[in-house]
Amino acid sequence: MKKTRPPEAASVSDAVSRRDFLADSGRLVTAACLAGVTAGAVRLSLPDVESGRRPRARLGAPADFKMGTVTWLQEHELFVCHKAHGFAAFSSRCPHLGCTVRRTTTGFRCPCHGARFDPEGRVVSGPARRALDWFAVETGPDGQLWVDRSRATEPGSFTPLRVAAAESAG
């Protein structure tokens, strides 16, 4: 191979020497290993299960929530609202950066950066850019109220529940 280099091959300075080629490949492999390990470490630190709350949760019996009241369920971080036209559940987490909002006489207010919301959770002023998150409410087979966090609904959309109507009439 050394002796039979064809004359039309690239000049010596252009040709990659065997040593350079090996060195470069070595660097490449080392770099690939490092990159792989780094990527692996990053992947490791991304949790695969986010243990936390499940999307569906039982809120309680419809009769627990009296007509005309807004109930804060601390453990679910939800407000449950019962009005003449039905039930609704919305989050007590501020859509700005996640603090817990508090009720005021005019709606809700967040202590962290001063966002204010109306009684149905729509933004009145402050840094929040969207309303409190509303979630679908339904009755389960057990006759209890359930919330489904994977299904967002529009602020002000109540789920009419005949069960509740029947109960409160009786």
């Binding site: 630190s45 991304l46 949790p47 996640g98 603090c99």
Partner: peptide
């Protein structure tokens, strides 16, 4: 609360935000 707010803020960063948030928080909460 400082950490809750700042990690939420990280989530707003484009592209890598959500991953950074997850790496720091290590879960849903």
């Amino acid at each position: 609360w400082a950490v809750r707010v700042v990690t939420e803020l990280l989530g707003l960063l484009p592209v890598v935000g959500r991953a950074m948030q997850l790496v720091l928080v290590g879960g849903a909460e």
